[in-house]
Design a protein around this nucleic acid. Structure first.
Length: 540
DNA sequence: CTTGGAATAT
DNA sequence: AATATTCCAA
Protein backbone atom coordinates (compact mmCIF):
# COMPACT_ATOMS: atom_id res chain seq x y z
CA UNK A 1 0.00 0.00 0.00
CA UNK A 2 1.19 3.41 -0.80
CA UNK A 3 0.03 6.30 1.19
CA UNK A 4 -0.20 9.57 -0.53
CA UNK A 5 0.50 12.90 0.97
CA UNK A 6 -3.19 13.42 0.95
CA UNK A 7 -3.71 10.33 2.94
CA UNK A 8 -1.28 11.60 5.43
CA UNK A 9 -2.90 14.95 5.63
CA UNK A 10 -5.97 13.57 7.16
CA UNK A 11 -4.10 11.37 9.51
CA UNK A 12 -4.56 12.33 13.07
CA UNK A 13 -1.84 11.43 15.46
CA UNK A 14 0.41 10.19 12.75
CA UNK A 15 2.10 7.79 12.87
CA UNK A 16 -0.06 6.29 15.52
CA UNK A 17 -1.85 3.32 14.14
CA UNK A 18 0.44 2.93 11.21
CA UNK A 19 0.11 -0.62 10.14
CA UNK A 20 3.25 -2.64 10.12
CA UNK A 21 3.58 -5.98 8.49
CA UNK A 22 6.12 -7.96 10.37
CA UNK A 23 7.60 -10.98 8.68
CA UNK A 24 9.76 -12.98 11.01
CA UNK A 25 10.90 -16.52 11.11
CA UNK A 26 11.40 -16.65 14.78
CA UNK A 27 8.58 -16.53 17.21
CA UNK A 28 10.38 -14.90 20.06
CA UNK A 29 12.04 -12.38 17.93
CA UNK A 30 8.74 -11.57 16.35
CA UNK A 31 6.94 -10.91 19.55
CA UNK A 32 9.83 -8.94 20.85
CA UNK A 33 9.71 -6.66 17.87
CA UNK A 34 6.00 -6.47 18.03
CA UNK A 35 6.14 -5.35 21.61
CA UNK A 36 8.54 -2.63 20.75
CA UNK A 37 6.53 -1.45 17.82
CA UNK A 38 3.31 -1.53 19.71
CA UNK A 39 4.80 0.46 22.50
CA UNK A 40 5.20 3.12 19.90
CA UNK A 41 1.63 2.79 18.80
CA UNK A 42 2.38 1.04 15.62
CA UNK A 43 -0.10 -1.54 14.62
CA UNK A 44 1.62 -4.82 14.03
CA UNK A 45 0.64 -7.93 12.16
CA UNK A 46 3.01 -10.81 12.34
CA UNK A 47 3.57 -13.30 9.60
CA UNK A 48 5.83 -16.24 9.90
CA UNK A 49 6.34 -17.08 6.30
CA UNK A 50 6.56 -15.25 3.07
CA UNK A 51 3.59 -16.72 1.42
CA UNK A 52 1.33 -15.87 4.27
CA UNK A 53 2.64 -12.40 4.28
CA UNK A 54 2.20 -11.96 0.58
CA UNK A 55 -1.27 -13.29 0.62
CA UNK A 56 -1.92 -11.06 3.55
CA UNK A 57 -0.99 -8.15 1.39
CA UNK A 58 -2.97 -9.20 -1.57
CA UNK A 59 -6.05 -9.96 0.45
CA UNK A 60 -6.01 -6.54 1.94
CA UNK A 61 -4.08 -4.27 -0.36
CA UNK A 62 -4.53 -1.36 1.94
CA UNK A 63 -3.76 -3.33 4.99
CA UNK A 64 -0.24 -2.20 5.59
CA UNK A 65 1.80 0.90 5.38
CA UNK A 66 5.20 -0.52 5.90
CA UNK A 67 6.79 -3.91 6.19
CA UNK A 68 9.54 -5.10 8.44
CA UNK A 69 10.93 -8.25 6.97
CA UNK A 70 13.58 -10.54 8.23
CA UNK A 71 16.25 -12.00 6.06
CA UNK A 72 16.96 -15.12 7.97
CA UNK A 73 20.20 -16.96 7.83
CA UNK A 74 18.42 -20.19 7.22
CA UNK A 75 16.28 -18.98 4.42
CA UNK A 76 17.26 -15.59 3.12
CA UNK A 77 15.30 -16.12 -0.05
CA UNK A 78 12.11 -15.67 1.83
CA UNK A 79 12.90 -12.08 2.52
CA UNK A 80 13.98 -11.49 -1.03
CA UNK A 81 10.87 -13.05 -2.34
CA UNK A 82 8.85 -10.72 -0.26
CA UNK A 83 10.74 -7.76 -1.54
CA UNK A 84 10.22 -8.75 -5.09
CA UNK A 85 6.55 -9.29 -4.66
CA UNK A 86 5.70 -6.40 -2.49
CA UNK A 87 7.25 -3.57 -4.33
CA UNK A 88 4.57 -1.18 -3.37
CA UNK A 89 5.09 -1.57 0.28
CA UNK A 90 8.00 0.27 1.79
CA UNK A 91 9.95 -2.60 3.16
CA UNK A 92 12.58 -2.53 5.81
CA UNK A 93 14.79 -5.52 5.91
CA UNK A 94 16.16 -6.82 9.13
CA UNK A 95 18.75 -9.44 9.65
CA UNK A 96 21.36 -11.00 11.76
CA UNK A 97 23.41 -11.25 8.66
CA UNK A 98 25.76 -8.37 8.71
CA UNK A 99 27.06 -8.90 5.31
CA UNK A 100 27.36 -6.22 2.78
CA UNK A 101 26.21 -8.39 -0.05
CA UNK A 102 23.04 -9.22 1.72
CA UNK A 103 22.39 -5.62 2.49
CA UNK A 104 23.12 -4.67 -1.05
CA UNK A 105 20.83 -7.25 -2.39
CA UNK A 106 18.05 -6.08 -0.18
CA UNK A 107 18.46 -2.52 -1.17
CA UNK A 108 18.82 -3.44 -4.78
CA UNK A 109 15.61 -5.37 -4.60
CA UNK A 110 13.88 -2.33 -3.33
CA UNK A 111 14.19 -2.40 0.40
CA UNK A 112 14.05 1.05 1.84
CA UNK A 113 16.37 0.24 4.63
CA UNK A 114 18.40 -2.52 6.12
CA UNK A 115 18.48 -2.85 9.86
CA UNK A 116 20.86 -5.14 11.57
CA UNK A 117 19.57 -7.06 14.47
CA UNK A 118 19.01 -6.82 17.28
CA UNK A 119 16.39 -4.23 16.68
CA UNK A 120 16.32 -1.58 19.28
CA UNK A 121 13.46 0.78 19.74
CA UNK A 122 15.75 3.38 18.43
CA UNK A 123 16.05 1.55 15.20
CA UNK A 124 12.38 0.95 14.93
CA UNK A 125 10.84 4.14 15.99
CA UNK A 126 11.39 6.01 12.80
CA UNK A 127 10.18 3.52 10.31
CA UNK A 128 7.25 5.79 9.65
CA UNK A 129 9.58 7.97 7.67
CA UNK A 130 9.57 5.51 4.86
CA UNK A 131 5.86 5.73 4.64
CA UNK A 132 6.02 9.44 4.34
CA UNK A 133 8.83 9.25 1.93
CA UNK A 134 6.96 6.89 -0.25
CA UNK A 135 3.89 8.99 0.04
CA UNK A 136 5.57 11.99 -1.43
CA UNK A 137 7.22 10.00 -4.10
CA UNK A 138 3.92 8.54 -5.05
CA UNK A 139 2.42 11.96 -5.22
CA UNK A 140 5.20 13.25 -7.28
CA UNK A 141 5.15 10.52 -9.81
CA UNK A 142 1.39 10.65 -9.98
CA UNK A 143 1.22 14.35 -10.48
CA UNK A 144 1.58 15.45 -13.99
CA UNK A 145 1.28 19.02 -13.00
CA UNK A 146 4.44 20.81 -12.08
CA UNK A 147 5.45 19.39 -8.85
CA UNK A 148 4.22 21.16 -5.90
CA UNK A 149 7.23 21.79 -3.82
CA UNK A 150 7.37 19.08 -1.31
CA UNK A 151 8.10 21.44 1.41
CA UNK A 152 4.94 23.25 0.68
CA UNK A 153 2.88 20.16 0.84
CA UNK A 154 4.41 19.35 4.10
CA UNK A 155 3.58 22.69 5.45
CA UNK A 156 0.08 22.34 4.28
CA UNK A 157 -0.31 19.07 5.91
CA UNK A 158 -2.22 18.83 9.04
CA UNK A 159 0.14 16.41 10.56
CA UNK A 160 0.87 17.53 13.99
CA UNK A 161 4.57 17.59 14.07
CA UNK A 162 4.67 17.86 17.76
CA UNK A 163 3.01 14.56 18.01
CA UNK A 164 5.25 13.11 15.45
CA UNK A 165 8.16 14.45 17.31
CA UNK A 166 7.56 12.20 20.18
CA UNK A 167 8.56 9.42 17.92
CA UNK A 168 11.64 11.10 16.78
CA UNK A 169 12.42 13.60 19.41
CA UNK A 170 16.02 12.76 19.47
CA UNK A 171 16.35 12.90 15.80
CA UNK A 172 15.18 16.42 15.69
CA UNK A 173 17.69 17.52 18.15
CA UNK A 174 20.37 15.72 16.37
CA UNK A 175 19.65 17.20 13.08
CA UNK A 176 19.48 20.60 14.58
CA UNK A 177 22.64 20.40 16.51
CA UNK A 178 24.84 17.46 16.05
CA UNK A 179 23.58 14.68 13.97
CA UNK A 180 24.89 11.52 15.33
CA UNK A 181 22.66 9.37 13.27
CA UNK A 182 22.47 6.86 16.01
CA UNK A 183 19.65 4.82 14.72
CA UNK A 184 20.01 3.25 11.38
CA UNK A 185 16.56 4.38 10.67
CA UNK A 186 17.91 7.58 9.40
CA UNK A 187 16.33 9.94 7.04
CA UNK A 188 17.21 8.95 3.60
CA UNK A 189 18.50 12.32 2.85
CA UNK A 190 21.64 11.34 4.50
CA UNK A 191 22.17 8.43 2.27
CA UNK A 192 21.14 10.35 -0.74
CA UNK A 193 23.34 13.20 0.13
CA UNK A 194 26.20 10.87 0.41
CA UNK A 195 25.48 9.06 -2.74
CA UNK A 196 24.48 11.87 -4.93
CA UNK A 197 26.27 14.89 -3.74
CA UNK A 198 29.59 15.05 -5.40
CA UNK A 199 30.44 18.40 -4.08
CA UNK A 200 32.18 19.16 -0.88
CA UNK A 201 31.30 17.76 2.43
CA UNK A 202 30.67 14.24 1.49
CA UNK A 203 31.14 12.51 4.67
CA UNK A 204 30.07 15.26 6.88
CA UNK A 205 26.50 14.86 5.89
CA UNK A 206 26.03 16.52 9.16
CA UNK A 207 27.32 19.67 7.69
CA UNK A 208 25.41 19.62 4.50
CA UNK A 209 22.24 18.52 6.09
CA UNK A 210 22.45 21.10 8.73
CA UNK A 211 23.00 23.71 6.19
CA UNK A 212 20.06 22.63 4.19
CA UNK A 213 17.67 22.15 6.96
CA UNK A 214 18.79 25.38 8.39
CA UNK A 215 18.10 27.20 5.21
CA UNK A 216 14.71 25.73 5.05
CA UNK A 217 12.56 25.55 7.97
CA UNK A 218 13.74 23.06 10.33
CA UNK A 219 14.65 19.54 10.74
CA UNK A 220 11.19 18.22 10.38
CA UNK A 221 11.44 18.81 6.72
CA UNK A 222 14.64 17.22 6.00
CA UNK A 223 13.31 13.86 5.14
CA UNK A 224 10.86 15.10 2.64
CA UNK A 225 13.55 16.80 0.76
CA UNK A 226 14.88 13.54 -0.31
CA UNK A 227 13.05 13.01 -3.43
CA UNK A 228 15.68 10.89 -4.95
CA UNK A 229 15.36 7.27 -4.35
CA UNK A 230 17.76 5.87 -6.80
CA UNK A 231 20.12 4.41 -4.39
CA UNK A 232 23.00 3.70 -6.52
CA UNK A 233 23.81 0.25 -5.46
CA UNK A 234 26.51 -0.25 -7.94
CA UNK A 235 28.80 2.09 -6.18
CA UNK A 236 29.37 -0.67 -3.83
CA UNK A 237 31.31 0.18 -0.83
CA UNK A 238 34.09 -2.14 -0.37
CA UNK A 239 33.07 -5.11 1.63
CA UNK A 240 34.67 -3.92 4.76
CA UNK A 241 31.78 -1.99 5.97
CA UNK A 242 28.91 -4.12 6.98
CA UNK A 243 29.29 -4.72 10.61
CA UNK A 244 31.36 -1.72 11.20
CA UNK A 245 29.70 1.40 12.12
CA UNK A 246 31.13 4.79 12.21
CA UNK A 247 31.48 5.98 15.65
CA UNK A 248 29.74 9.05 16.60
CA UNK A 249 32.32 11.61 17.28
CA UNK A 250 30.26 14.64 17.84
CA UNK A 251 32.41 16.37 20.33
CA UNK A 252 35.81 15.39 19.16
CA UNK A 253 38.30 17.34 17.27
CA UNK A 254 38.16 14.83 14.51
CA UNK A 255 34.69 15.80 13.70
CA UNK A 256 35.63 19.37 13.32
CA UNK A 257 38.40 18.30 11.08
CA UNK A 258 35.97 16.45 9.01
CA UNK A 259 33.97 19.51 8.35
CA UNK A 260 36.87 21.20 6.85
CA UNK A 261 36.49 21.25 3.11
CA UNK A 262 40.21 21.23 2.79
CA UNK A 263 40.24 17.71 3.96
CA UNK A 264 38.00 16.65 1.22
CA UNK A 265 40.26 13.95 0.06
CA UNK A 266 40.29 12.43 3.40
CA UNK A 267 36.61 12.65 3.59
CA UNK A 268 35.82 11.18 0.30
CA UNK A 269 34.86 7.65 0.42
CA UNK A 270 33.61 4.90 -1.71
CA UNK A 271 30.13 6.06 -1.07
CA UNK A 272 30.67 9.12 -3.09
CA UNK A 273 32.51 7.81 -6.03
CA UNK A 274 30.28 9.65 -8.38
CA UNK A 275 33.33 11.28 -9.78
CA UNK A 276 36.17 9.01 -9.04
CA UNK A 277 38.53 10.75 -11.36
CA UNK A 278 38.68 13.63 -9.04
CA UNK A 279 40.16 11.57 -6.38
CA UNK A 280 43.81 11.49 -5.83
CA UNK A 281 43.50 7.76 -6.18
CA UNK A 282 40.79 5.33 -5.47
CA UNK A 283 42.89 3.21 -3.25
CA UNK A 284 43.99 6.21 -1.42
CA UNK A 285 40.57 7.44 -0.79
CA UNK A 286 39.48 4.11 0.46
CA UNK A 287 42.30 3.80 2.85
CA UNK A 288 41.91 7.28 4.02
CA UNK A 289 38.33 6.66 4.48
CA UNK A 290 39.05 3.73 6.60
CA UNK A 291 41.43 5.74 8.67
CA UNK A 292 39.47 8.83 8.66
CA UNK A 293 36.97 7.77 11.18
CA UNK A 294 37.17 5.35 13.94
CA UNK A 295 35.36 2.25 13.05
CA UNK A 296 33.82 0.25 15.73
CA UNK A 297 32.92 -3.32 15.47
CA UNK A 298 29.59 -4.11 16.87
CA UNK A 299 29.92 -7.45 18.55
CA UNK A 300 26.40 -8.56 18.23
CA UNK A 301 25.45 -11.80 19.76
CA UNK A 302 25.53 -13.24 16.34
CA UNK A 303 28.98 -12.13 15.66
CA UNK A 304 30.00 -13.33 19.03
CA UNK A 305 28.53 -16.71 18.28
CA UNK A 306 30.70 -16.90 15.27
CA UNK A 307 33.59 -15.97 17.41
CA UNK A 308 32.85 -18.63 19.96
CA UNK A 309 32.29 -21.15 17.28
CA UNK A 310 35.62 -20.36 15.79
CA UNK A 311 37.28 -20.63 19.12
CA UNK A 312 35.62 -23.94 19.73
CA UNK A 313 36.62 -25.19 16.39
CA UNK A 314 40.18 -24.22 16.90
CA UNK A 315 40.53 -25.51 20.36
CA UNK A 316 42.35 -23.69 23.02
CA UNK A 317 45.77 -24.19 21.70
CA UNK A 318 45.04 -22.54 18.43
CA UNK A 319 42.51 -19.99 19.37
CA UNK A 320 44.56 -17.04 18.40
CA UNK A 321 43.28 -13.95 16.72
CA UNK A 322 44.46 -14.67 13.23
CA UNK A 323 42.98 -18.12 13.12
CA UNK A 324 39.80 -17.06 14.73
CA UNK A 325 39.59 -14.36 12.18
CA UNK A 326 40.03 -16.82 9.37
CA UNK A 327 37.35 -19.07 10.65
CA UNK A 328 34.89 -16.35 11.28
CA UNK A 329 35.03 -15.22 7.73
CA UNK A 330 33.56 -11.88 8.47
CA UNK A 331 34.27 -9.15 6.05
CA UNK A 332 35.89 -6.17 7.47
CA UNK A 333 36.81 -7.74 10.70
CA UNK A 334 40.44 -7.33 11.55
CA UNK A 335 42.82 -9.29 13.59
CA UNK A 336 42.87 -6.43 16.00
CA UNK A 337 39.16 -6.58 16.41
CA UNK A 338 39.34 -10.23 17.18
CA UNK A 339 42.27 -9.82 19.49
CA UNK A 340 40.50 -7.17 21.37
CA UNK A 341 37.41 -9.25 21.67
CA UNK A 342 39.41 -12.25 22.68
CA UNK A 343 40.97 -10.23 25.38
CA UNK A 344 37.65 -9.25 26.72
CA UNK A 345 36.40 -12.76 26.40
CA UNK A 346 39.20 -14.14 28.45
CA UNK A 347 38.90 -11.46 30.99
CA UNK A 348 35.26 -12.19 31.52
CA UNK A 349 36.14 -15.73 32.17
CA UNK A 350 38.71 -14.83 34.68
CA UNK A 351 36.40 -12.47 36.44
CA UNK A 352 33.80 -15.07 36.54
CA UNK A 353 36.16 -17.46 38.12
CA UNK A 354 36.83 -15.05 40.91
CA UNK A 355 33.27 -14.05 41.33
CA UNK A 356 32.27 -17.62 41.48
CA UNK A 357 34.80 -18.49 44.06
CA UNK A 358 33.83 -15.59 46.16
CA UNK A 359 30.28 -16.63 45.93
CA UNK A 360 30.92 -20.19 46.88
CA UNK A 361 33.46 -19.62 49.54
CA UNK A 362 32.99 -16.11 50.65
CA UNK A 363 34.87 -16.52 53.90
CA UNK A 364 38.03 -17.68 52.32
CA UNK A 365 39.53 -14.42 51.77
CA UNK A 366 43.01 -14.65 53.08
CA UNK A 367 45.66 -14.98 50.45
CA UNK A 368 46.61 -18.43 51.47
CA UNK A 369 43.16 -19.77 51.09
CA UNK A 370 42.55 -17.90 47.96
CA UNK A 371 45.69 -19.22 46.65
CA UNK A 372 44.47 -22.62 47.37
CA UNK A 373 41.39 -21.96 45.36
CA UNK A 374 43.33 -20.54 42.57
CA UNK A 375 45.53 -23.49 42.36
CA UNK A 376 42.84 -26.00 42.22
CA UNK A 377 42.05 -25.58 38.61
CA UNK A 378 45.25 -27.29 37.82
CA UNK A 379 43.32 -30.32 36.79
CA UNK A 380 41.17 -28.31 34.55
CA UNK A 381 43.83 -28.00 31.97
CA UNK A 382 42.80 -30.57 29.50
CA UNK A 383 45.27 -32.71 27.73
CA UNK A 384 46.52 -31.18 24.59
CA UNK A 385 45.86 -32.82 21.34
CA UNK A 386 48.00 -30.66 19.31
CA UNK A 387 51.08 -31.50 17.45
CA UNK A 388 51.98 -27.92 17.28
CA UNK A 389 54.88 -26.71 19.15
CA UNK A 390 53.55 -25.41 22.32
CA UNK A 391 55.25 -24.63 25.50
CA UNK A 392 54.66 -27.23 28.11
CA UNK A 393 52.00 -26.31 30.51
CA UNK A 394 53.55 -24.93 33.59
CA UNK A 395 52.55 -26.88 36.57
CA UNK A 396 50.91 -24.98 39.30
CA UNK A 397 51.42 -26.87 42.46
CA UNK A 398 48.31 -26.72 44.42
CA UNK A 399 49.57 -26.20 47.85
CA UNK A 400 52.81 -24.51 47.40
CA UNK A 401 53.88 -21.80 49.69
CA UNK A 402 52.94 -18.41 48.54
CA UNK A 403 55.97 -16.66 47.40
CA UNK A 404 57.90 -19.67 46.39
CA UNK A 405 58.69 -19.87 42.78
CA UNK A 406 59.13 -22.56 40.33
CA UNK A 407 61.15 -21.73 37.34
CA UNK A 408 60.38 -18.12 37.85
CA UNK A 409 56.69 -18.56 37.93
CA UNK A 410 55.19 -17.32 41.11
CA UNK A 411 53.03 -20.12 42.16
CA UNK A 412 50.14 -17.93 43.06
CA UNK A 413 50.06 -16.55 39.65
CA UNK A 414 46.80 -17.22 37.93
CA UNK A 415 46.97 -19.69 35.15
CA UNK A 416 48.40 -18.11 32.10
CA UNK A 417 45.83 -16.55 29.88
CA UNK A 418 44.64 -18.88 27.30
CA UNK A 419 44.38 -21.77 29.60
CA UNK A 420 40.96 -22.89 30.40
CA UNK A 421 40.00 -22.13 33.87
CA UNK A 422 37.81 -24.23 35.90
CA UNK A 423 34.53 -25.22 34.51
CA UNK A 424 32.36 -22.23 34.82
CA UNK A 425 28.76 -21.34 34.55
CA UNK A 426 28.35 -18.66 32.01
CA UNK A 427 25.56 -16.54 33.32
CA UNK A 428 27.73 -13.52 33.62
CA UNK A 429 28.94 -13.70 30.12
CA UNK A 430 26.08 -11.88 28.72
CA UNK A 431 25.93 -13.57 25.37
CA UNK A 432 25.00 -16.77 27.07
CA UNK A 433 26.13 -19.10 24.37
CA UNK A 434 24.47 -21.94 26.12
CA UNK A 435 21.40 -22.29 28.23
CA UNK A 436 21.81 -22.06 31.95
CA UNK A 437 21.78 -25.72 32.69
CA UNK A 438 24.54 -26.54 30.34
CA UNK A 439 27.96 -26.35 31.75
CA UNK A 440 30.54 -24.91 29.56
CA UNK A 441 34.18 -24.64 29.87
CA UNK A 442 36.06 -21.45 29.92
CA UNK A 443 35.97 -21.23 26.18
CA UNK A 444 32.30 -21.64 25.96
CA UNK A 445 32.48 -25.23 24.95
CA UNK A 446 29.74 -27.35 26.26
CA UNK A 447 31.12 -29.84 28.68
CA UNK A 448 30.08 -33.41 28.76
CA UNK A 449 28.57 -34.28 32.05
CA UNK A 450 31.13 -35.64 34.43
CA UNK A 451 31.90 -39.32 34.20
CA UNK A 452 29.14 -41.61 35.26
CA UNK A 453 31.04 -42.46 38.34
CA UNK A 454 29.84 -40.30 41.14
CA UNK A 455 31.72 -37.08 41.33
CA UNK A 456 35.12 -37.62 42.63
CA UNK A 457 37.06 -34.47 42.53
CA UNK A 458 40.24 -35.77 43.93
CA UNK A 459 40.42 -38.38 41.34
CA UNK A 460 40.05 -35.66 38.86
CA UNK A 461 42.89 -33.95 40.53
CA UNK A 462 44.98 -36.92 40.02
CA UNK A 463 43.97 -37.26 36.48
CA UNK A 464 44.79 -33.69 35.91
CA UNK A 465 48.19 -34.17 37.32
CA UNK A 466 48.75 -37.22 35.28
CA UNK A 467 47.76 -35.31 32.30
CA UNK A 468 50.25 -32.76 33.22
CA UNK A 469 52.78 -35.45 33.20
CA UNK A 470 51.53 -36.73 29.94
CA UNK A 471 51.79 -33.32 28.51
CA UNK A 472 55.26 -33.20 29.72
CA UNK A 473 55.95 -36.37 27.93
CA UNK A 474 54.19 -35.44 24.80
CA UNK A 475 56.30 -32.43 24.36
CA UNK A 476 59.37 -34.43 24.82
CA UNK A 477 60.54 -32.37 27.67
CA UNK A 478 63.38 -33.71 29.66
CA UNK A 479 61.94 -35.41 32.61
CA UNK A 480 64.39 -34.07 35.02
CA UNK A 481 62.99 -30.66 34.53
CA UNK A 482 60.85 -29.18 37.18
CA UNK A 483 57.74 -30.11 35.35
CA UNK A 484 58.24 -33.64 36.24
CA UNK A 485 58.58 -33.90 39.90
CA UNK A 486 55.35 -32.37 41.04
CA UNK A 487 53.27 -34.79 39.15
CA UNK A 488 53.96 -37.88 41.15
CA UNK A 489 54.73 -36.39 44.42
CA UNK A 490 51.91 -34.05 44.35
CA UNK A 491 49.55 -36.81 43.50
CA UNK A 492 50.24 -38.33 46.78
CA UNK A 493 49.90 -35.07 48.54
CA UNK A 494 46.75 -34.28 46.78
CA UNK A 495 45.28 -37.47 47.96
CA UNK A 496 46.38 -37.02 51.49
CA UNK A 497 45.26 -33.51 51.52
CA UNK A 498 41.93 -34.45 50.16
CA UNK A 499 41.41 -37.05 52.75
CA UNK A 500 42.78 -35.15 55.63
CA UNK A 501 41.17 -31.88 54.92
CA UNK A 502 37.67 -32.54 53.84
CA UNK A 503 36.76 -29.05 54.91
CA UNK A 504 38.71 -27.52 52.14
CA UNK A 505 36.71 -26.29 49.22
CA UNK A 506 36.02 -28.51 46.36
CA UNK A 507 36.08 -27.67 42.73
CA UNK A 508 33.08 -25.84 41.62
CA UNK A 509 29.99 -27.79 41.08
CA UNK A 510 31.23 -30.85 42.83
CA UNK A 511 30.05 -32.28 46.04
CA UNK A 512 32.24 -33.98 48.54
CA UNK A 513 32.32 -37.69 48.16
CA UNK A 514 31.89 -39.90 51.11
CA UNK A 515 35.00 -41.10 52.76
CA UNK A 516 34.20 -44.60 51.71
CA UNK A 517 33.91 -43.76 48.13
CA UNK A 518 37.16 -41.91 48.36
CA UNK A 519 38.86 -44.93 49.76
CA UNK A 520 37.26 -47.20 47.28
CA UNK A 521 38.22 -45.03 44.44
CA UNK A 522 41.74 -44.68 45.61
CA UNK A 523 42.07 -48.35 46.02
CA UNK A 524 40.72 -48.86 42.59
CA UNK A 525 43.23 -46.46 41.24
CA UNK A 526 45.94 -48.27 43.04
CA UNK A 527 46.88 -45.18 44.86
CA UNK A 528 48.16 -45.57 48.34
CA UNK A 529 46.75 -43.47 51.04
CA UNK A 530 47.35 -43.18 54.67
CA UNK A 531 44.62 -43.52 57.16
CA UNK A 532 43.93 -41.27 60.00
CA UNK A 533 45.25 -37.85 60.49
CA UNK A 534 48.28 -37.97 58.38
CA UNK A 535 50.90 -35.37 58.34
CA UNK A 536 50.09 -32.13 56.74
CA UNK A 537 51.27 -31.96 53.26
CA UNK A 538 54.51 -30.22 52.91
CA UNK A 539 54.73 -27.30 50.64
CA UNK A 540 56.01 -28.23 47.32
C1' DC B 1 58.37 -7.55 9.43
C1' DT B 2 54.33 -9.98 11.65
C1' DT B 3 51.95 -11.75 15.57
C1' DG B 4 49.64 -12.37 20.15
C1' DG B 5 48.76 -10.42 24.26
C1' DA B 6 48.71 -6.99 27.92
C1' DA B 7 48.27 -2.35 28.93
C1' DT B 8 46.32 1.69 27.98
C1' DA B 9 43.31 5.07 25.60
C1' DT B 10 38.92 6.52 23.93
C1' DA C 1 31.62 -1.10 29.61
C1' DA C 2 33.06 -2.01 25.19
C1' DT C 3 36.16 -1.43 21.78
C1' DA C 4 40.32 0.53 19.74
C1' DT C 5 45.03 1.57 19.95
C1' DT C 6 49.54 1.18 21.57
C1' DC C 7 53.40 -1.17 23.19
C1' DC C 8 56.39 -4.93 23.54
C1' DA C 9 58.35 -9.39 23.33
C1' DA C 10 58.52 -13.50 20.40
Amino acid sequence: MVCTANDLQGWKDFPKGLRVLLLEGDNNSASEIRTKLESMDYNVSIFYNVNEALSGISSSPKGFHVAVVEVSTSCPDGGFKFLENAKDLPTIMTSNIHCLNTMMKCIALGAVEFLTKPLSEDKLKNIWQHVVHKAFNADKSAMSEPQKPVKESVESMSIDLDKVSKFSDNEQEHSAASDKYPAPSTPQLKQVARLVDDGDCHEQTKCSIEKESGEHDGSECKFVETSCENLNTENSLQPTKPLIKEEEDSSKGESSVSTNPQSKNLLDNADGNASPNERSGPKDSCENRANRKKMKVDWTSDLHKKFVKAVEQLGIDQAIPSRILELMKVDGLTRHNVASHLQKYRMHKRQMLHADEDRKWPNQRDPMQRNYCMQRPIMAYPPYHSNHTYPPAPIYPMWGQPGSQIAGVPIWAPPPPGYPLWQQPTENWHWKPYPPGVHVDAWGNPMLPPPQTPCFPYTQNIIGLQNAKATDYRFGMPHNSFEHYPAEEVVDKVVKEAINKPWLPLPIGLKPPSMDSVMAELTKEGIPFSKGKGSKSKPC
